[in-house]
């Protein structure tokens, strides 16, 4: 996978939730669902290159997949990684 592809893959899935909207309003932070193996440095580079903005901080967390049961069969959704990307003042992303 080329580095360009990887970059787009990193920012392809914005997480649009009530919590994310509040974070956006409070500290200009945008939430993305990123691959589990993504690191903060490449996330920062991807957001800066793809959206042309200044990133001041990247916080990541691993989200445990929820348990799911279908009749007798118990299962679990995959874990995923959430990245909260804080932008510099005056920078915005049109994530919709």
């Amino acid at each position: 996978m080329s580095s360009i592809d990887r970059m787009y893959r990193l920012v392809a899935r914005p997480v649009i939730t009530e919590k994310g909207s509040m974070d956006q309003a409070d500290r200009n932070a945008y939430h993305f669902r990123v691959p589990l193996d993504a690191n903060k440095v490449e996330i920062r580079q991807a957001v800066e290159r793809v959206f042309g903005v200044k990133v001041t901080a990247v916080n990541t967390s691993r989200v445990r997949g929820k348990s799911r049961r279908r009749g007798w069969v118990a299962g679990q959704r995959p874990d995923w990684k959430k990245a909260r990307v804080t932008l510099g003042e005056g920078h915005t992303i049109d994530v919709l």
Binding site: V15, I16, T17, E18, S21, A25, L96
Partner: peptide, 16 residues
């Protein structure tokens, strides 16, 4: 999806 009922920000409504 992702918001409690009635808690979607107006800005998001405007976009959609």
């Amino acid at each position: 999806k992702g918001f409690r009922p009635g808690k979607v920000p107006p800005a998001l409504i405007e976009k959609r």
